[in-house]
Amino acid sequence: MYDIVNYEEAGTVQEAIRLLQANPRARLIAGGSDLLVKIYKGKITDAELVSLRGIIALKDISIEGDGTVRIGACATFSRIAGHPLIRKHVPVLAEAVSRVGGPQIRNIGTIGGNICNGVTSSDSAPTLFALNALLRLEGAGGTRVAPIQDFYLGPGKVDLRQAEVLTEILLTKENYQGFGGHYIKFAMREAMDIASLSCAAVCKIVGQNVIADFRLALGVAAPTPMRCLRAEEIARGRVFSEELLLETGRTAVTEVNPRTSWRATREYRLQLVEELSKRAFKQAFVKAGGVLL
């Protein structure tokens, strides 16, 4: 049973903002793959919804003259995974969102909803963290742009203010051009499962296998998705080697704070952090054009 007492469809972002202003209890809905489950299970009662699904502009994917890739918040995972701009410029993101649920979920679930749900197991979040994604948010007070790292406040909590709409995810050229990337989702079963741990790495090399830049992001390793900044710093400026892989993985373990759940114990997740960090780094290095010696 879906306990929905009011439902309105917005035709524009500004209309959605006005509807949210008029009714502070209203919640935004896009694909509904997360929200409708909560309503069905009784976690949300007397739901009042404002739908974004009719706003065509929020589904657009484009690239600006300065190389910034713009992804509308209502773009579905299927659309992102198959879009030629994403596959050409940020294939690691296509790789990550193709791991979300099954085909039905990917066809209706949106990247904006995945972010705003605020869960640490989000498949899109680690890759967006590694790519230094920016979020464009529009509200009654105007527009603001926030780094995705600042948007996650705690488990299931994000910095989405009242009467505010996430409209776009922005990936700037300097944060993806020349990088190779790799995403790993470790789950109890391969299909349609939530990650026990997830890991995204992006890497840029110069000269003879020297790591010019490296970023490592994890999901389910802390209350929110996170970057392993100390591990990243260790790798930069170093020649890629098995020794560097080991050092990076061990350092990543010191930065995380996973919990025990029915999916995995804290101790098991710590092992996964070390192993997946090494695997993702190695594959990102290869995809960046590095040569394994």
Rank of each mutant, 00 (worst) to 15 (best):
V100R: 08
K282L: 12
S78T: 15
G118H: 10
A94E: 06
R25S: 12
D159N: 04
D123H: 11
R18P: 00
S241F: 09
P91A: 10
K59V: 01
G207H: 15
A146N: 05
R215E: 02
P126F: 12
A133E: 09
V119G: 05
C116L: 03
L166Q: 12
V239M: 13
A125H: 13
G67C: 02
F214D: 07
T167A: 04
R106H: 09
I105D: 14
R18W: 01
I4D: 02
K59D: 00
R161P: 00
D193P: 10
K59P: 00
V37C: 03
E138S: 06
L36M: 15
A231P: 03
H182P: 01
L49R: 03
L270Q: 07
G219A: 12
L270A: 05
L85C: 03
V37E: 10
G67S: 06
G180Y: 08
K43T: 00
P155R: 04
F285Q: 13
P223L: 08
A26S: 14
I71D: 07
G181V: 10
G102R: 08
S261C: 11
D34P: 05
F281C: 06
N107K: 10
Y268K: 04
D34I: 05
G289N: 07
G42D: 11
L293G: 15
A187C: 07
L197V: 07
V273S: 03
K204F: 01
Y2V: 08
V5R: 11
E267Q: 06
G249M: 09
D123S: 12
R269E: 01
V92Q: 09
A222M: 11
V220R: 07
R259D: 06
K204Q: 14
A81R: 13
L49F: 06
M226R: 07
A201M: 01
G42C: 13
I63Q: 13
Y7A: 01
R18G: 02
A163I: 01
V220G: 02
M226I: 14
G32D: 12
A264Y: 04
I111S: 08
